[in-house]
Design a protein around this nucleic acid. Structure first.
Length: 743
DNA sequence: ATAGGGTTAG
């Protein structure tokens, strides 16, 4: 067959449609000798580069290397191939070769080189190539210069981009839009807008660029406004435009608008590609209409990864985490984003253990966790008090598994703080090069939680000295610090200062802090006065802290007022009834106390059991008073008896006054030892190595008896014990606690 | 014979 001279002449002009066909053709050409003829090789090369799906760059480069003396056109083709197929540096290297072989570049060559330098962020090379270009082509055409502007935009060199733009003698629509989109993307919205207003040639691309700029800058309303202006200007939206607009709807969580855009797309006959379907799914997911999202998803033929991920996100957002998981398990291929969405979903629904388990799976899968993964998991560890896992994540960061940034550092500080390890938290804080207001906030709040209120205030002042302007959240941290450490004078002055110095209007949480602080310090009249005069409606948290203060300072009248308001806001919260009941019992008003019991029964409010949890070897163990379901309950029971025995030997008297149930004293003592935090501590004593602190989380407030008993336990066993309850940390060491007023 | 600009997940 090959002996036919006609066929061998025809060979080079065939167009291969697969890699196999290409290699066959290539082989035939080598054998027949037609590879040596430049036009034939050029054609083969070009058809290989252009027709292969996916493009096979290394094959193309190999073939190129065999071509004896490629012309400028062929060099351009190969440089372009590199710039388009993820090997931009290779195209710069090729240009170097071209230059050394004395082949003259043309303006196409430069276009592709600019593109390569842009996508690979090669600022130095970019400037060199630019210099060369100006020397060779002083009369620059709009085509190549548009690429040049684009390159400088990608390098973040707005000034250079602008100068290049100004040098163009005849600016066309593309050079204008390149400027507009570059400016908008870099966040120079005002400049972009000015260019947009000046341009004589506006089209759908310039409109879309500007809309996208606003959407990306979290200014979705303005993006939508521009979109309506564009429509009234009679510019037809295309697929890219509506993708951008849908992302703005998602940002605004405006389902109505999203639905309107959806019907607009159908009405206008806008071409619906996979990208657009993904944008629709994402919009519906974020707006909370997962059924519509599912409909779009079902309509998709070949389901792309992004669509799966958007669906997972949608089910997570409405809290249907199991549905999300089932989708996740159905995915053929998933990526780190799929994992992150699931992990965040678990964290949001409080299934922290599942989140950590999924992380283990992620590591097994060989995918690389990124900053989102680590920040999410650190948050989970923080609320679990899972110090071991938190430390493992810290190790991941130290091993440079992810790129260090300020969010990561802040999450790390927060985790160590919430796990009660203030030393490590401060070490991380001190090592951070960049700290933003959130970093400081996490540090201040963490110190406050850990009973180091004075130090928290010092850090707050330090933050201000470093020129960081405190925001509302930072003030919340510092007020929390004051209320946790009973720093009344300081609390008052910070509360005053946030308004006068920083023009921050106190929100309900800030009022909550200052009212709590006043109440704790016994200034009940002042507290109630503030509640009555503040510009926001008091919430349940505020009345609850009033009620606690009233119990301690024995103000029956105010207590009843607080309870009345509290019961209006939270008629089903058992803790309110219990608290009020206890207050009546304290002051021996038995009739009122039993009325409360009756009220609870009438309203069907059941007292829910408080639980405590402890993490051992990555497993969360939950204890409920009186619950025998723990696997090692016998050992726990034994340990509790041992604790009771040793405490008695040390002369400990259980504080039974707080128990208002009708029991004799011995039964009361036993009841105290069935408390869930004591069970958790007992389990910690038997299962944790002696050098590890025992870290317990309690979902209710630690009671007075537990507080003093744990002090003694820490001394007798010489163990550090950290108990974290709803509102604070208790660090027990050497028979002492970091917070001395237990309530 | 080759060409420049706008989009997307957590």
């Amino acid at each position: 067959m090959l002996s036919s001279p006609t066929l061998s002449k025809l060979l080079p002009w065939l167009t291969p449609s697969s890699l196999k066909q290409s290699t066959q053709l290539h082989a035939l050409m080598v054998v027949s000798g037609s590879l040596l003829s430049p036009p034939a090789t050029t054609h083969l090369f070009k058809s290989i580069v252009d027709s292969l799906q996916p493009p096979n760059l290394s094959y193309a480069l190999q073939l190129f290397a065999q071509i004896p003396s490629p012309c400028t056109f062929l060099w351009n083709t190969v440089i372009r191939a590199c710039s388009r197929n993820g090997a931009p540096r290779e195209s710069i290297r090729l240009y170097d070769q071209m230059h050394r072989r004395g082949i003259a570049p043309d303006s196409y060559t430069f276009q592709f080189l600019f593109k390569s330098c842009g996508v690979s962020s090669s600022a130095f090379e970019g400037r060199m190539v630019h210099g060369l270009f100006v020397k060779l082509f002083p009369e620059s055409d709009a085509y190549a210069v548009s690429s040049l502007i684009h390159m400088y935009m990608e390098l973040g060199r707005v000034g250079d981009a602008r100068r290049a733009f100004q040098r163009i003698s005849r600016r066309d629509v593309v050079s204008w839009t390149t400027m507009i989109s570059g400016m908008a993307k870099l966040g120079f919205l005002n400049d972009a807008r000015k260019l947009f207003d000046e341009t004589p040639v506006r089209n759908v691309v310039s409109w879309t660029s500007l809309i996208a700029g606003y959407a990306q800058a979290d200014r979705a309303e303005e993006a939508i406004e521009l979109f309506t202006k564009m429509l009234s200007d009679n510019v037809k939206a295309d697929t890219v435009t509506v993708v951008v607009v849908l992302s703005a709807c998602a940002q605004l969580k405006d389902l109505e608008l999203g639905k309107w855009i959806h019907s607009f797309i159908q009405k206008e006959g806008i071409i619906i590609n996979n990208n657009l379907v993904v944008a629709l799914i994402d919009m519906y997911s974020k707006c909370g209409d997962v059924n519509c999202a599912q409909e779009c998803f079902d309509s998709m033929g070949r389901k792309v990864l992004q669509a799966w991920n958007a669906m997972i996100d949608g089910y997570c957002k409405i809290g249907d985490i199991d549905r999300a998981r089932s989708l996740f398990d159905q995915m053929g291929v998933c990526d780190v984003i799929s994992f992150n969405s699931m992990i965040t979903g678990y964290i949001h629904t409080g299934r922290l253990k599942d989140a950590l388990l999924l992380f283990a799976k992620l590591r097994e899968s060989g995918l690389r966790p990124d900053n989102f993964t680590i920040v999410g998991l650190l948050t989970a560890c923080a609320s679990l008090g899972a110090l071991d896992q938190g430390k493992a994540l810290h190790a991941c960061i130290e091993e440079k598994l992810v790129q260090w940034d300020v969010y990561l550092g802040t999450a790390l500080v927060d985790m160590y703080m919430k796990c009660g390890n203030t030393e490590q938290a401060m070490l991380v804080f001190q090592r951070m090069e960049e700290r933003d207001v959130r970093t400081w906030g996490a540090t201040i709040a963490g110190l406050a939680l850990n009973g180091m209120g004075k130090l928290a205030l010092e850090y707050f002042d330090l933050m201000k000295k470093e020129g960081i302007r405190p925001n509302s959240v930072a003030y919340l941290s510092v007020l929390t610090a004051c209320s946790h450490s009973g720093l009344l004078k300081e609390g008052r002055s910070y509360f005053e200062e946030m308004r006068s110095l920083y023009k921050l209007e106190p929100e309900i949480e800030h009022y909550g802090c200052i009212i709590d602080l006043l109440g704790r310090s016994g200034h009940l009249k002042e507290a109630i006065g503030l509640i009555e005069t503040m510009p926001v409606e008091p919430n349940a948290v505020i009345w609850a802290s009033m009620l606690s203060a009233c119990r301690v300072y024995k103000d029956m009248e105010l207590a009843e007022k607080a309870a009345e308001n509290l019961l209006k806001l939270e008629p089903n919260e058992d803790a309110v009834y219990v608290q009020l009941y206890n207050i009546y019992v304290d002051s021996r008003r038995w009739a009122d106390a039993s009325k409360i019991r009756k009220l609870m029964e009438e309203r069907g409010v059941r007292k829910t059991a408080g639980y405590s949890s402890i993490t051992v070897a990555g497993q969360v163990h939950k204890f409920v008073a009186g619950d025998q379901s723990h696997l090692q309950i016998t050992e726990v029971q034994k340990m509790l008896n041992e604790i009771a025995k040793r405490l008695k030997l040390a002369g400990y008297l259980p504080i039974i006054q707080q128990i208002s149930v009708d029991l004799d004293d011995e039964e009361k003592e036993q009841a105290l030892f069935a408390h869930s935090e004591k069970m958790a501590i007992a389990y910690g004593l038997i299962s944790l190595p002696p050098n590890l602190p025992i870290h317990v989380i309690k979902n209710l407030r630690v009671c007075e008896d537990c507080h003093s008993a744990i002090k003694l336990i820490s001394k007798i066993w010489n163990r550090e014990i950290v108990v974290r309850d709803r509102s604070r940390f208790h660090h027990f060491r050497d028979g002492r606690c970091s917070c001395n007023d237990f309530w």
